[in-house]
Design a protein around this nucleic acid. Structure first.
Lengths: 167, 167
DNA sequence: TCTGATCTTTACGTTCACGTCAATTTCTTT
DNA sequence: AAAGAAATTGACGTGAACGTAAAGATCAGA
């Protein structure tokens, strides 16, 4: 149907292929396809099955964020998916909000919904940070104790055998 | 062979069985056996294969710590194992150090070895904490922005529709 | 237009971290 | 001593998260 004029030729606009994206974020094409398959990533836009997937820089960022969260929170991809419904929703929100034509009521609804998502994520992250912080503290304490014992040993007995006076 | 006198009868000294331990730490016997199998936990002391495993409170604590680290760091059991070579070594150190008969040289060696292990763990944890902290910060920033937009919206347009003035 | 590199789908394989079942055996209790 | 509860080893099963191989299609460049 009415082929659109040369508007946005296929190779224009940094269009990355799956292999490029994989290299950029340090993973494999298979993983990207898999994430798409389970709905963790949105299916690369309207693409007659069989054609190559094309990505934009924004999608690369998104993937980076996904992998970062996976690494940091160590949650299952399923949990991550629900967590990212937040991200998805926020993307949607941003899109809608840009369209300027939204009624203030709807707009407010979208914004406060996004806020809710963010707060959920934040809470989870804070919890983790707190736990980790506690562990860090405990480790530091232990280290202190061990160090003290080392000092005491060195003081009360022979002078520490300095193997090699570091320069 | 010469049955030892009633020293430490089987039921004496809080001796827990695998089921008890599992309940205590919130896991299953299978998991405990598995951890033992892959060497993440030391084989419950000298036990003619076939007899029931018996645990002490100390071992329960140890398992708790293992599970905590697994949860917090989200690493594979294999990585965890190397990380815990630290713990193991420290346990060994504590045991040796208690025996008072160790020569100061050896003692010092043990202590500084332990210190090294602790520092490795600490470093890893600190790194994680930092990353998580950064994420937390970013999320907080985003939240701030969204909140501001919400406020602006409410100010410039109709007064926010207060659904129910909370008491 | 041809070609080699990359991608597509399909499908089976793999590793990790256990779950589950079965046939016995060991403890505990009566 | 007898019985029931819980444990033991062994083996196979499972879901998650990809890896890998095959056969053909698509894409970028000469």
């Amino acid at each position: 149907m009415t082929p659109s004029p040369t508007l946005a030729s296929p190779t224009a606009l940094q269009s990355l292929r799956i292999g490029d994206v994989a290299r950029l974020v340090g993973t494999t094409p298979r993983t990207i396809r898999y994430y798409e398959e389970i709905g963790l990533l949105p299916e690369a836009r309207a693409r007659p099955s069989g054609r190559h997937r094309l990505y934009t820089q924004a999608e690369v960022e998104r993937l980076r964020e996904v992998m970062r969260l996976k690494h940091l929170l160590g949650v299952s991809l399923e949990e991550l998916k629900t967590l990212l419904s937040a991200e998805e929703a926020r993307a949607e929100v941003r899109a809608q909000l840009r369209r300027a034509g939204v009624e203030p009521g709807r707009r407010r609804e979208l914004l406060s919904e996004a806020l809710g998502h963010i707060e959920r994520q934040l809470e989870l992250v804070r919890h983790r940070t707190a736990e980790l912080g506690k562990l860090e503290h405990e480790l530091a304490e232990t280290r202190k104790r061990v160090r003290r014992r080392l000092r005491e040993q060195d003081e009360h007995h022979e002078p520490r055998p300095v193997k090699a006076a570091a320069g």
